[in-house]
C-alpha cells in the first residue's frame, strides 16, 4: 500500500480540503444497478411518496461512497483505508431535475494511531442537513 500522504507530515486537527459531489436521478439508477439495491424509494417518486418520503432519496450507500472517495482521494491509495463507518443521519433528497442534489464533504484528522494510521472524521451535508454522522475512517499513511 502506498498512500501518498505521509504520516509524519500530518497533524491532529489538520483540515482536509472540502469537496462537493453531485447526485442526480441517473446516478441513483446506475448505483441501483451496480449495487443490486433496487428499493423503489431510490428511483420511483410515486412510491417514495406513498411510504411518507418527501421525494426520491439517494441510497445511503451512495452518500457513504462519496465520503469514501473523499478519503481515498486524500490518501492517494484506496487500499490505505482500513476501516470506514458511518451513521445515516438524514436523507439526501434528489429532485427530478438536471441539477439533482449536492453532497458537501469535509474532513479533519482527529487522531494519530500506531502503525502509521490516522483517524479522519468526516462531515457530509446536503443543503442544511447533516446526512452522515459518526463518519469516521482509519487510514494507513505512508
Amino acid at each position: 500500500m502506498t498512500a501518498t500522504i505521509k504520516y509524519d507530515e500530518v497533524e491532529v486537527g489538520q483540515q482536509i480540503e472540502p469537496a462537493e459531489y453531485n447526485v442526480r436521478r441517473v446516478d441513483l439508477v446506475m448505483y441501483a444497478g451496480a449495487s443490486g439495491d433496487y428499493n423503489p424509494i431510490h428511483w420511483n417518486e410515486r412510491f417514495a411518496k406513498t411510504v411518507g418520503l418527501p421525494d426520491v432519496i439517494a441510497h445511503g450507500m451512495y452518500t457513504m461512497a462519496q465520503g469514501g472517495r473523499y478519503v481515498t482521494d486524500w490518501a492517494g491509495d484506496p487500499g490505505a483505508v482500513v476501516d470506514y463507518g458511518v451513521r445515516f443521519s438524514s436523507m439526501v433528497v434528489v429532485p427530478d431535475d438536471d441539477q439533482g442534489a449536492t453532497i458537501r464533504v469535509s474532513g479533519v484528522v482527529e487522531q494519530k494511531l500506531d502503525d502509521n494510521k490516522v483517524v479522519v472524521v468526516l462531515t457530509a451535508k446536503s443543503g442544511d442537513s447533516r446526512v452522515l454522522s459518526k463518519a469516521r475512517a482509519v487510514v494507513r499513511l505512508a
Binding site: 411510504v51 445511503g60 457513504m64 483505508v81 463507518g85 458511518v86 451513521r87
Partner: peptide, 17 residues
C-alpha cells in the same frame, strides 16, 4: 416490512483490500 426500511449505519473493517 421492506417498504419501510432505510439504512441506519454501515461499517467496513479491512484486513486487506
Amino acid at each position: 416490512n421492506y417498504a419501510m426500511v432505510v439504512h441506519g449505519e454501515q461499517r467496513f473493517e479491512y484486513v486487506r483490500p
